[in-house]
Write a protein that binds this DNA or RNA. Structure first.
Lengths: 104, 104
DNA sequence: CTTTTTTGTTTTTTATAACGAACATAAGAA
DNA sequence: TTCTTATGTTCGTTATAAAAAACAAAAAAG
């Protein structure tokens, strides 16, 4: 549910509800309602505003963290992989290092 | 913009505006407004309803029409990443790992 | 051709998202 | 202790998302 996701990201950033509301330019009353799921139908613009101080994208607000298997390759993963490849990571590099990390 | 995206997917599926509205359970008047961008602030529930007959996800409605993810990376990359994730690699792990590769 | 049905648009109305202000509660400072 | 100050909640209102209905234009059927 979107309310849980927002609260989770907000607290991960160490922001209070009031702080996030101010930074995002939305009312804290409504943010409170959303987080407690008294309302759970925010608009795109609302989500877009909130995503800025949370330093994320609207899409990521919608992905729940216990992603089902088919959802493993969400947009965020794709972005990360894309950037790594651009930075010069080869498949061999990846295999080598990921195995080493797994072993330790 | 979301209206263009919806119209694009609707037409790709060969659906009329009225058909999509009926299938999704939303009013055609509002759908018309959204597609023509007279309104461009739909709610999550609205997008969720529309995503069903369009056979897509809300997240994908929000992504602009770049190449779908399957086309960006090849099968081998997908398999490698999939395996690594199954072995417990988190996004944070991946970022650390790719930074190390970049540094070497 | 005329009539009917399909398409999307415009208008009007209703429901509710979202706001601002008042409020409660607790934590910290005096 | 009492007085602020920071936090989130509840209340009352406003703005607007979304529906329903009426409409226009075209396409298809007769």
């Amino acid at each position: 549910m979107i309310g849980d996701r927002i609260k989770e990201l907000r607290e991960k950033k160490g922001l209070t509800l009031t702080e996030l509301a101010d930074l995002a330019g939305v009312s804290k009353s409504y943010l409170s309602h959303i987080e407690r799921k008294l309302q759970n139908n925010p608009s795109l613009q609302m989500l877009s505003k909130i995503s800025v101080p949370l330093e994320t994208k609207v899409q990521y607000l919608l992905t729940d963290q216990q992603a089902p298997k088919e959802d493993v390759f969400d947009e965020e993963w794709m972005a990360l992989l894309h950037k790594a490849i651009e930075d010069g990571m080869s498949k061999e590099d990846f295999v080598r290092l990921s195995e080493r990390i797994r072993m330790q």
